[in-house]
Design a protein around this nucleic acid. Structure first.
Lengths: 360, 360
DNA sequence: CTGAAAGCGCTAACAA
DNA sequence: TTGTTAGCGCTTTCAG
């Protein structure tokens, strides 16, 4: 390995001078700079990150932890329940592009519902200056502990008092707008709900909104619901349950906690000969890329996932620069995306900003 | 920051002993271990990665560089030309799960066709023990230089003599099988090709295979082609060109260099009232998730992207462990995925392993 | 404008 | 079984 000393020796200067040249500082005579630069080039010197980090007390790396929700046997190609994080990660990468920051990401696997295994947290936290934590860890005491040592920003986590910052989409208002559309614009009355993991803050908010809207429309109600884990397969299973229990008195709309389950529902319903949206409307949440390709194209709520990543990252960097900042919650607005699975005419593609219902 | 010394002082032992306890080594009396462990817990000590890396001369981090192919204005939601890397990254994460390794990934932006900007390479390389390089960098002299300093594995790069290892899908055989299917099984004769970026090794191989098969079928030929950049939008543009130039004597099949462009073609053709596959068959490459949701479902070639990531990662770790290994090329087999956009009956979903045509 | 030298936090060889 | 100590590569203060 070529070190600073090798360069210094070759250029017949001290390591301090080499360091100055490497960092483009002034206060180096031009002739010296040239000599050093030449030595660097000839030797192919690249500064060692470990040495730099140790000396600077700064790693210039941020970490990101994602929770991979999978249960045994469901890890098939369809269970792409991470598409979400892919988008978020783009936002983060976008934010740190052309900066000195680098991203270290880990996908952890949830061992069943409930608390995720956070044992991998420490190795990560020793190598970064701050951490972006994906939805699913928020309630964990380990996160709280972590946040005491390191800047932490929770993405899409539990809202409310936290030791860490939170950046989340306004799930409640988005879901409320969607359900309102189903009821007010399409006259749907008998709803069925396909829920998400019980420990997902996002899923909880969406469900709360459903109930909230329903309370405001006396003629309407939930005729049933089924749990899911955010995967296509779990959506299919939910639809099969629905079919088994509610035929022939089917619901006239199935509200799903995310797009992938909605796609699963769409698939199962279509396979069973049920017309969508003729007999039953189906809606998702997230507006993942596959949503627009579904048959029929999926009506859903667009979560600004990329922006989520960008904002969370920006906040984290602020936090690292100023550790004194008071933790804050940032809610990003969503968009109602009308396609045709809700009953809107084929070809419909409308995006409507959703206003925040109740500031929380 | 809590250091080893703080723990040592509190437990009244030396730093060496603390280190031993942290690493679960034997040769520590049980009573001592307990005392140290307690100090660690009370203080909330987590080893600093920089210190460890410096001392161990090993960072326990691997890097991954991806090339984001985008041109100004095409950075819309549809241009998800990275779906590919998302899958590869899953494979890598899968491979290092439960190991001490962590992944540091960077998305670089290609500044126009041709050489990518590799200036971000050095900061990365100083922080990792080895690098996974995404397709698009392979020919860069910077990579060759990099490979002299560090273990490097190129994913889907140029085949042939390299300073670095290469793990790639067998694009040639896959594309050949696909085109053969179109010609031999569906009697298509007048093909149109939608190509990829001129500097993409994958796109080049696929194109070579098309020509190769065509040479073996005298009655068939290429009636035209259009360039693309692997994005949905560029596929749509290609289809519009096709329509403008070749109507009414349309080709009977459009072979696209990847799925996203095929989806764009599908969309443009359908919008123009052309029946797919009735009048024109359309095929893709990659078997991305959206492919199966397209209308009609896309016939394509499945690239084992996840496996690509896994193998590349495994090889990199081997390389790190044994720097002496001779660089090798690893070609992974593809699968022909028959759905209905090629002319196979609706509902068809067949996956056929593709045999390696000519070992290269 | 340049150099000497003191760490940064941790590991591991060697001693005790 | 435990402690001492010499680095690992780099930055930065303080002198010169």
């Amino acid at each position: 390995m070529v070190t600073l000393y090798d360069v210094a020796r070759r250029a017949a200067v001290s390591t301090a001078t080499v360091s100055r040249v490497v960092h483009g500082q002034d206060r180096v005579r031009e002739a010296t700079r040239l000599r050093v630069q030449q030595a660097i080039d000839e030797l192919g010197y690249v500064p060692d990150g470990a040495g730099q980090s140790l000396s600077r007390r700064r790693k210039d790396i941020i970490g990101m932890m994602c929770l991979e929700r999978e249960i045994a046997g469901q890890h098939d190609i369809e269970a792409e329940c991470l598409l979400y994080y892919d988008e978020v990660q783009r936002g983060v990468q976008e934010q740190i592009r052309d900066s000195q920051w680098l991203l270290l990401s880990t996908f952890m696997r949830a061992n069943g519902p409930g608390e995720a295994d956070v044992s991998g947290l420490d190795p990560l936290s020793g190598k970064v200056d701050g951490i972006l934590v994906g939805e699913g860890f928020a309630d964990s005491p380990s996160i709280q502990r972590l946040a005491r040592r390191l800047p932490v920003v929770v993405i899409a986590g539990t809202l409310g008092a936290q030791a860490a910052d939170v950046v989340a989409a306004d799930n409640f208002s988005g879901a409320a707008a969607l359900v309102t559309h189903l009821i007010a614009d399409h006259g749907r009355r008998r709803l069925f709900h396909v829920g998400g993991p019980p420990d997902s803050p996002d899923a909880i908010q969406r469900r709360l909104a459903l109930d909230h809207v329903l309370r405001g429309h006396p003629g309407c109600g939930l005729i049933g619901s089924a749990p899911g884990i955010f995967s296509v397969a779990s959506g299919e299973q939910a639809a099969e349950q629905l079919l088994a229990r509610h035929r022939p008195a089917l619901p006239d709309a199935v509200v799903c906690a995310n797009d992938q389950m909605a796609i699963g529902v769409l698939r199962a319903l279509t396979a069973a000969g049920v017309a969508v949206p003729g007999e039953v409307a189906v809606t998702g949440f997230d507006d993942l890329y596959p949503a627009r390709l579904a048959g029929p194209p999926l009506t859903t709520v667009r979560q600004p996932m990329r922006t989520l990543g960008e904002r969370a990252c920006a906040r984290l960097l602020d936090r690292i620069a100023q550790p004194g900042l008071t933790p804050a919650v940032q809610l990003l607005p969503t968009e109602l995306v009308l396609r045709s699975s809700c009953g809107c005419p084929p070809g419909t593609v409308t995006r409507q900003p959703v206003r925040t219902l109740k500031p929380r």
